Simulated scan of single mutants.
Amino acid sequence: MPTRSSTVPGDWQMPRQDTSTTDTRAAHKVTLVGAVLDSILGVAKMIVGYAVGSAALVADGIHSFSDVATDAFVLAATHFGRQAPDHDHPYGHGRIETLGTLLLGSILIFVAGGIAWASLSRLIEGVAIAPPGPWAIALAVVALAGKEWIFRYTLRVARRIGSRLLEANAWHSRSDALSTVVVLVGLVGAQFGIEWLDAVAAIAVGLLVGHIGTSLLWDASRELIDTALPEDEQRGMRSLAQRVPGVRSVHKLRTRTLGGQVLLDLHLVVAPRVTVSEAHEIGNQVSRELCREYPRLADVTFHIDPQDDSNAPPPVKLSGLPLRADIEAALERAWGDMPVWQRRIALDLHYLDNRVDVSLYIPLGERHDLDTQARELRQAGEGLEWLGWLRIWQGPGKA
């Protein structure tokens, strides 16, 4: 016979300081710094490129300006993606950052294809590059240093605040730095008459940028389809939850990520007759322990089970047991003329093993043969198929 367990769901969010606004400001600051740097470098590259007749340097300047548009998109996505949950988005807006990461990953792949194709065409056609002179080479070196610095700065902030979108933008800056490497190789090669170095280096850079873009697309896609955390992290969470006093076992542990944060659902098996409030506090303690150990946990939803229902059919596929109102009506019909039922002061119901255990409380101090009265109640209730254990207690009962 399938096992039915009553479940008390709970939802627990880690009390924490308002770090969302601070993280958003940090993301905006590093993105604005990158936008200013891209604008300055774009203007300088185009001016010097036109002055020395370097088409590669002019193209690299246009690439820098395209990064400014990407920076503007990142600003908007981090602003809206890190807003607090609202009525329409109870889990927050983290998916906006995920979609932004998908877009930036796609842009990187597009840029990689463009770099590789253009360079391969130049290599096949044997396009000549005029000697650019020392000023163009010096500007390329400065641009390379600037883009590498903004890449490292952005990546450091992205990992500190857990933003995949900002990390994707950092790698986009690195792709610009790598394209500048290609330009620099081409400029130096043209200066010394080795023009084919530009095309070969560009093809290699294109492959590298494409690999980065593909990796970002893959990670963002996994997040969109609610891929679970690695198995070792899930085992650690389960082990930690089982060590909390009052928890007998843990099952149906499920995880997913949302904009760099982790959401967790799990079932906790506790003693079958503890009070609802005690069981719920056990769940709260599990949540506190988990959130302290795993800082990325933003939301924990736990279900309290009086027994392990991991192999039981879904509740919607079971016939269901009667609830209190129907049970009291059925017991009234069966026991209504019995004095012990008439003198009851409380009634507890426990849903266990696909049955309903009944605990009947009568006033303290009265003299009763409880065993005899329990047998009489059992005989009168023989037609109640759902009736499990039957107990009579003397005392004030439970609230």
Rank of each mutant, 00 (worst) to 15 (best):
P9Y: 02
W12Q: 06
T21Q: 14
T21G: 11
A27L: 07
L41S: 04
G42R: 05
Y50S: 13
A55Y: 10
A55N: 13
D60Y: 06
G61E: 02
S66C: 08
G81N: 05
R82G: 09
Q83W: 00
P85I: 06
H89Q: 05
P90I: 01
T101H: 03
L103E: 00
S106V: 10
F110C: 11
V111P: 10
L120R: 10
R122Q: 12
V127I: 14
V127R: 14
A128E: 15
A138Q: 00
L144D: 00
W149G: 11
I150N: 09
I150A: 13
T154E: 07
T154R: 01
L155W: 06
R159L: 12
S163W: 01
R164Q: 14
V181I: 12
L184N: 06
V185C: 14
V185E: 01
G186I: 03
V188A: 13
G189T: 04
A190H: 00
A190K: 05
F192S: 06
H211Y: 15
G213P: 02
L217W: 08
E233C: 10
E233N: 11
S239L: 13
S249F: 04
V250G: 05
H251C: 13
G259T: 03
G260T: 06
V262F: 03
H267Q: 07
V274N: 02
E281M: 14
G283W: 03
Q285Y: 00
S287A: 15
S287R: 04
S287M: 01
R288D: 12
C291M: 15
L297N: 00
F302C: 09
H303V: 04
Q307H: 10
D308E: 09
D309T: 15
D309G: 12
D326T: 10
I327N: 07
E332M: 11
H350G: 11
L352V: 10
D357H: 15
Y361D: 10
L364I: 07
R378S: 14
E382M: 12
W386H: 06
W386K: 06
